[in-house]
Amino acid sequence: MRKLDFLLAILLGLGIWQVLVVITGAPHFILPSPWRVAKAAYFSRALIAENALVTITEVVLGLLLGTLLGMATALQLTLFKTAERLMLPILVFTQAVPVFALAPLLTLWFGYGMGSKVVMAVLIIYFPVTSAFHDGLTRIDRGYLDLAKTMGGARMQILRHIRIPAALPSLGSGLKLAAVYAPIGAVIGEWVGASKGLGYLMLLANGRAKTDLMFACLIALACLTVILHSLVGLLAKRLTAYAQGETRSGP
């Protein structure tokens, strides 16, 4: 039933798109029809795949590095109260700087290759991951901490056995946000300066009035993001199920 809904939604979207093309009578280099875009996607499939692979690599690397960095920061903020007091305002301030505005600078520092795009993705997901995990680590039922203290628990052990497992659902929500943001970071990095990647290809196609190819790239990018989001969503579900003590075979 849900698969059918999904299919219907896609058909509806395509229908509206086609109707718009017919009503406006726009030339194909302004608004190509779905069929034109499908043809462009088919003929340029190798080109799109090659560039998509670059973008995927950037996004996945960015996600991994950003997650590790964000988790490490959150753990450190939780362990050291002074770090929390000093770092938290700085972290919030850095969020006030639009990351997109940094893209040219990052290209200057890390070059036209993958490096600057990975850094861009890392920067864009670092805060959501840090903030979500830190929230989970600190917003914990005081009763658990009291009990742990009366048992003579050491700070590191409390972190390991109580805080981290209890924070896994929050980390999952942070990761789901990160999965949506990371591709944005990578593509913006590619727009500013790159020789490969979906963002680069979109810019190239746009410049040559190959609007149908640009639409094909856009759809490929959206599909990638949706797939990534679902995969990370599955992981988040597993993390939550673990923290709630649900076994997969259980009810």
Partner: peptide, 20 residues
Amino acid sequence: LLLPWLSVTDNLMIGASLRG
């Protein structure tokens, strides 16, 4: 205050785990 992710037996032994 049982930890939901641990089995009941492991919950009994949490004190030892917390003391390393």
